[in-house]
């Protein structure tokens, strides 16, 4: 892949480049399954693919939120503790009772939206850099989650997710786990929103040039705030799904998702400066990432080796996707 570094900076058409990146992400996933099948026969079988997809669905949900904010050149570092807080809020608010499930889910999603609103307000209105604002909010959510739950020692903290929520995640429908149906629905919905609505068009416009968008009458602040709210809600949704999947909440369950969501977004071909890429690529990126992790686990790669390889893979993809826009 290293030839790409030295390649002449040919001016490419933006849409072609986007398509190329999505294709890359899909190919990467396919290649990983192929390689996995070689080193670990059966890896590319239906059951194994389904298992990888199930894992990818959680990352994919979080990455959907990350995708929205990265499209306007932002980033959401508050994901870990929004997700963790959401998981704990769901079980403590529902007390594991079906009767309270609807209320608890609504409350949890509302919490995610509220955190996202605060993030978006700080970034869009108070002009705090996204890195700083969301980093600080991650701390705020960590402190609140730990403090209010007494470090997950509260009476209600040991509750399980309500049976309906668990069924909605673990149940099957037409031979596929329900969590995958949820993800498929999200893939379609996010792709539709980004590709076919005014909101999506404005999102790309802001990501490409916020000033020009404002001068074309786009309400940049409102859209930015909405995008961060979406990110908060997707983190909360992932928290709900995870706690529904595993039954109980735990501390630190959100931590891996920050790195993984950024990785999925990058592998999926989004430009970290905003304005380029789509969620199909990010979904494929989530699959690739989880396939990679599964392959490495299947061959008993030790933790340090996995950590090194994640980094190397991301660097190679970055180099393959080409130089950043500042170059021209």
């Amino acid at each position: 892949m290293s030839e790409a570094i030295g390649a002449a900076p040919v001016r490419r058409f933006a849409l072609d480049a986007d398509g190329r990146r999505v294709a890359f992400a899909v190919l990467a996933a396919a290649a990983l399954f192929a390689v996995g099948d070689l080193v670990h026969p059966g890896f590319a079988g239906a059951a194994s693919i389904e298992a990888v997809a199930l894992n990818a669905s959680f990352v994919g949900l979080v990455a959907a939120g990350q995708c929205f904010v990265v499209l306007v050149g932002g980033i959401d570092l508050s994901i870990p503790w929004v997700l963790n807080g959401a998981a704990i809020l769901l079980v403590t608010a529902s007390l594991g009772q079906n009767a309270r499930a609807g209320f608890a889910v609504a409350l949890t999603l509302g919490m995610g939206a509220l955190v996202g609103f605060v993030n978006g307000f700080g970034i869009a209105v108070l002009a705090v850099p996204a890195v700083v604002m969301t980093l600080a909010m991650n701390g705020v959510m960590e402190g609140l989650t730990l403090g209010l739950s007494g470090g997950l020692t509260c009476g209600a903290c040991a509750s399980y997710a309500p049976p309906v929520v668990r069924a909605a995640v673990n149940g099957g429908f037409l031979g596929l786990p329900a969590a995958l149906w949820v993800w498929l629905f999200i893939i379609v919905a996010v792709t539709f929103v980004l590709g076919f609505t005014g909101f999506g068009r404005k999102t790309y416009a802001i990501g490409n040039n916020a000033l020009a968008s404002r001068l074309a009458g786009v309400n940049v602040r409102a859209i930015t705030i909405l995008l961060y709210m979406l990110s908060g809600m997707f983190s909360a949704l992932a928290g709900i799904m995870l706690v529904g999947f595993g039954g109980q909440a735990s501390l630190g369950m959100g931590t891996p998702f920050l790195f993984q969501s950024v990785a999925a977004v990058v592998i999926g071909g989004l430009d970290i400066l905003g304005g380029r890429g789509n969620y199909v690529g990010v979904a494929a990126g989530s699959m690739s990432l989880m396939a990679l992790i599964s392959v490495l686990l299947a061959v008993d790669m030790p933790e340090y080796g996995r950590s090194i390889l994640y980094g190397v893979v991301i660097l190679l993809l970055l180099l393959a996707y080409g130089r950043n826009r500042a170059a021209d």
């Binding site: 990058v266 933790e303 090194i308 970055l318 180099l319 130089r323």
Partner: peptide, 21 residues
């Protein structure tokens, strides 16, 4: 490489952590 610092160092973070272990 003209890559974004935030992504480069996120990737090398993972590599350095692995090497440390």
């Amino acid at each position: 490489g003209r890559l974004q610092p935030i992504l480069v160092t996120l990737a090398t973070l993972s590599i350095f952590q692995g090497l440390a272990i």
